[in-house]
Each structure stands twice: as C-alpha cells, then as structure tokens.
Design a protein around this nucleic acid. Structure first.
Lengths: 218, 218
DNA sequence: CGTTGTGAAGGAGTTCACAGCA
DNA sequence: TGCTGTGAACTCCTTCACAACG
C-alpha cells in the first residue's frame, strides 16, 4: 500500500469518490463495495481499490467500505477539514458567474474576497460581497490567510498577477485564463479552459461522423 | 507517423497548440520551432513534435513550423472549420455565466440556443438570446443541427436530460454536473467540475505545507 | 462466501537520442 | 548547421487475477 507519493491520476479521482460517497450517504447507504463505488464514479472496481489503497484505507473484506468513514478519510486526505477561504481575482462575466456558483460553497470552499482592476467594477455588490480593488491583493490574502486563488482575468495581465499571488503567499491557483502560466516549484496551478474543452469535444464529434459505422449493416 | 487513432492525451493538447499559434501569429511571428511552441504551451519540444507527427504534419527541418499553416491544420483536425452551433441546457447561475462568456464565441462556437425548465427563466433575455423551454429541446437541436451541447443543470435531472440530448442527435456534451453520467458509444461526454478542481488543488496545497522544505535552509 | 488488497502483466504516454533532411 | 521526425527506452497508469481474510 503506502510508499511513495499518491499518483496524480489517483489524486484527481479522490474528489469524485468523495462526491459519490456523499450521495450514497444521502441515500441512506452505509456500506459500499468497490464495485458500487466504481459504478457511481464512472470507473471500475480494480481502479477504485488501488486508488483507495494509497490512502492506507481499510475496507472490510467480504463487506466493503464504510461510507461515512471513507468520506471522512478522503476529506482529510484532500485537506478539506474546514471551509477554505479562496480569493477570486477577476470579476468579469466568468468571474461573476463563479462568484454566484454555489457549488464551491457546497463543497467546502468560501469565496473570501472578490478583486478586480476596473474602477467601474470595484465597489459593486456581487453575490453578496463588495468587490475590492486588486491593489489590495496582498492585504486581502494576508487578512483571510488564503492559500487558494481563482483567476479569471484576461490573458495579457495574467502572468504578473500570478507572480503577485505567489509573492503574497498563495500556494494553489485555479486558472480560467486561456494561456500557459508559470509558477515556481511548490505552487500548483490547474488550468480550466472552457473553449479548449469544446474543441476537444469537437474533435471526437467530428471523428464519429467521419468514421464508418462500427457495427450493424444499416 | 500516422497509424492508429490519435492518442487522447495528444488530442487534449491540440487546442492548446492552436491557441499558442494564434497568439504567435498575432505577434507577427510566422515560423516557430518545436521548442518555441513548447515554451508557449507549457510542454516540451519532444512532446510537441511527437504530437504534431500524428497529424502527418510536416514542419521544415532546420527551420520549424509555419505558424499560419499549422494553425489551419490544427483547426481542420479539430473540426473547427466553421462556427459550430452549441445548445446550452440550464440557465442558472453557472449557465448564465457560460452564456455571457465570450471565450466560446471567440474560439469558434456559437451558443445557438439557451434552454431551461423553470417557468420564471423561460422567456428571459440572457446574453442577447431569449431562453426557450427545455420542452422544445428536440426541435431546437434539429433546427440548428447542433451536435454539441453544454449541460449546466442540477445532478438530479441530468441523466434523463443526457438521454434526451443523445436521442435528439447530440454527439458531444460538455457537462458541468458534478455526477457521473453515462452516454452510449459514439457519444462523447467531458465533465468539468469546478469544485473538484479546487479539491485537487487543496490536496497539493496542503501537501506542500506539510512536507519538509525541499531545498535550502535559507 | 464475498470482497478487499496487491503483486505482476499489460498498455499508454513521455522522453531520449539520433538519423535524416532542408 | 539546426531542427524535424521517430524508433527505442523508460515511466506512469490501468487492469488482471488471486491470495488473504473478515
């Protein structure tokens, strides 16, 4: 079981397992077999067991995993012990949406501050918070002890902003900026690019149309 | 070079290359070496060359790749020859944001229709379109010949909606629903879960804090 | 008996390293 | 000479298959 670090591919699945477990708990289930969890998460049983084995988790042979206990272990592994303050930089269309999106709140994150550079936006009330000036970034990060930031600003201003966030103490950034951004070692950046996702889908959609029918002679 | 299908990992990077090439073109560059492209996209030169080789692309040895030509080839490979009509299902907080997000438009997609189930939302003007009833889904898909859909509705209604979209002729779905959804063979579904992304970041952020400093006793 | 936990096998993706060509 | 294109080596991830065990 435990030896080196948890593989990145496994880490990316842990939140999915957690979500599936919370749904199971909601439905009154209190034990799940790896196969049940696999079905709910969209993977397969072997993968589920291997993934969970990295946590040193113990299910019960012949029975399965305790839903509540496993959910607790996953939350702990992910560092979700309390509501984590997140700073959102960029309150344009997308930023505004993210601010209103209650999925963050429901899954353990609190948007502690909204920042923007535009004078017309600063001072506005968005999703129950007053937008502050990005000039106050360093104070805001310190004030809330935020180590997570969400970035939704234009590409041109993004790299300097990343550098400022890192200098201010942010250790992980979720970027919606459609450009490569560099961070130093010890800081994690994940990029979500919505148009890229559609383009990937476009590739496969088009493939299916072009390809010969895989089966059946009509 | 070309043999079997293009690896999924490569497909997921093609839009990133395309984006980098468009930026280069914007900046007046007309030839890039694999190393330049790698730097711009955040990968490495060997990966770039191997990826492009699957397209049967030919750069010029000793010189590099023609920016405009390669961008055209990538667009073609991705099926981005024209503005593709996309149907958005779910005009809540997130859906509203997606509707207003101009990244889709700028990168070759047109939100052809916005659909929702809530009577209070139907008929509203959102991002310049009138929201239509989800009851009209089948007509709307046929009308615009949309093969792509974006799904931003609550988890509870999601699977039946996926089934309806597929039955109506949609071949690729970008889902923001935080649950596993099944699609038949020949239909592609990509899931983007914003809270999951933050949870993954949380894991790494917390790791760094717990780990001993990797170098230098400062 | 049923399900976990895990070595071992297999497959996918990445990187190396260099021959081939402009 | 410089950079592409690509087999081969390597690393990472997934799946198999079964012993271990409640």
């Amino acid at each position: 079981m435990r030896d080196g670090p948890i593989p990145a591919a496994t880490v990316a699945r842990l939140p999915v397992y957690l979500q599936a477990l919370l749904e199971a708990a909601e439905a009154g289930v209190d034990v799940v077999a790896s196969d049940d969890l696999a079905r709910a998460a969209g993977y397969n049983a072997a993968k589920v067991r291997k993934d969970l084995s990295y946590l040193g988790t113990h299910g019960t042979r012949g029975v399965g995993y305790d839903v509540e206990g496993l959910a607790r272990e996953l939350s702990l592994a992910l560092g979700l012990v309390e509501d984590r303050p997140v700073v959102l930089v960029g309150v344009g269309n997308l930023g505004r949406a993210l601010a209103s999106y209650d999925g963050f709140r429901r899954r353990g994150f609190r948007l502690a501050a909204l920042l923007d550079a535009a004078p017309t936006v600063i001072g506005q009330e968005v999703a129950g918070s007053r937008v502050r000036s990005v000039a106050e970034l360093e104070e805001v990060v310190a004030e809330h002890a935020s180590s997570l930031a969400v970035l939704a600003i234009p590409a041109a201003q993004a790299q300097p902003m990343v550098d400022r966030l890192v200098a201010a103490g942010v250790r992980a950034i979720l970027s919606f900026v459609p450009t490569h951004l560099s961070v130093p070692d010890g800081v994690t950046l994940r990029r979500v690019d919505l148009a890229t996702e559609l383009q990937i889908l476009s590739f496969y959609e088009q493939l299916v149309v072009d390809a010969p029918a895989p089966t059946a002679p009509f």
